[in-house]
Simulated scan of single mutants.
Amino acid sequence: MAQPHAYDEIAMEYGGNIVFLRASLRAATLIEKMDGGFAGVLQKLQQGHTRTLRDIVLNSATDRTTALALLDTMQDENLSVIQQTLIAPAFAILTALMTPDLSTEKPTPTATTTAKAKPVAWADFYSELYQIATGWLGWTPDAAWNATIPEITNAFQGHVDMLKAIHGGGDDAEQSNTQTAEQHKAIVEAGFDPEFDREGLRALKEMSKQKTGETA
């Protein structure tokens, strides 16, 4: 299974029905709050823990009611079939949330000269994104919660560029943009969770490939 772009909705099919999952800010916040945080969720995914798979689907579904109905139809299904159906989309969502696509973000003039940013908690990072979306960008709370991480960061970058074009740049805007870029760099280079299991993430990816019949 190819790794999806963070913007894409991920289709989960069973019994002729389809549920769409989205790596939204709401999904990120809810899944990170699950027992054990991302490290605990990753470990349980590796074990094929069905309740964890179910919770990831429900927390990331674009239509929770439809997702719940689909999951209820699977109650009498064999465990292996449930795992085969849920693990690939659940893994895709977790990967999108733990490795956000920041490749399109423009570097700031001072980004290469500042000291390495200190890692911050995932919850704090998501809280900051919500503040940026609703405060700086003026989005409604619902729009902010449904947006993906790249959608928020790219929109914020465009907003800052607009302010610079209109006002010729400003210390406050540049400082806020630089801080965000440094924090994003810290995510990619070090991760936030000290228990982040990068080897486990790779192992889960291999498991996902096997479940979907994809060869490496």
Rank of each mutant, 00 (worst) to 15 (best):
D72W: 03
L42Q: 12
H49S: 10
Q46M: 08
A61R: 14
A39G: 09
I87H: 03
D55L: 09
V41K: 12
A90D: 06
H49K: 14
W145D: 11
Q43R: 15
A61W: 13
A123S: 13
T73V: 14
A143D: 08
D142E: 11
L129M: 07
K116N: 13
S60N: 13
L79I: 09
D72I: 03
P119S: 11
I56R: 10
T95M: 06
P119A: 10
R51N: 14
T104H: 09
T108M: 08
A61T: 15
Q131G: 06
L68K: 12
K118F: 04
A88Q: 11
T110E: 14
W122G: 03
T140G: 01
Q75I: 09
L97E: 13
T99E: 07
A67Y: 12
A88Y: 02
V120D: 03
E77M: 10
L42W: 02
T66W: 06
S80F: 15
P89H: 00
T110K: 13
W139N: 01
L102P: 00
L79A: 09
S80Y: 12
P100S: 08
I93F: 07
A90H: 04
E128T: 12
A117H: 08
A147N: 04
I132W: 00
A115H: 05
A144H: 00
I56Y: 10
A69T: 15
P119C: 05
M98Q: 06
M74L: 10
T114Y: 03
D63P: 09
G48A: 02
I152W: 02
P109A: 03
V41A: 10
M98G: 04
P119D: 11
M74W: 04
V120C: 01
T104K: 14
L71A: 07
G138E: 02
D55M: 10
N146P: 00
T73G: 08
A96Q: 13
T62S: 12
A96I: 11
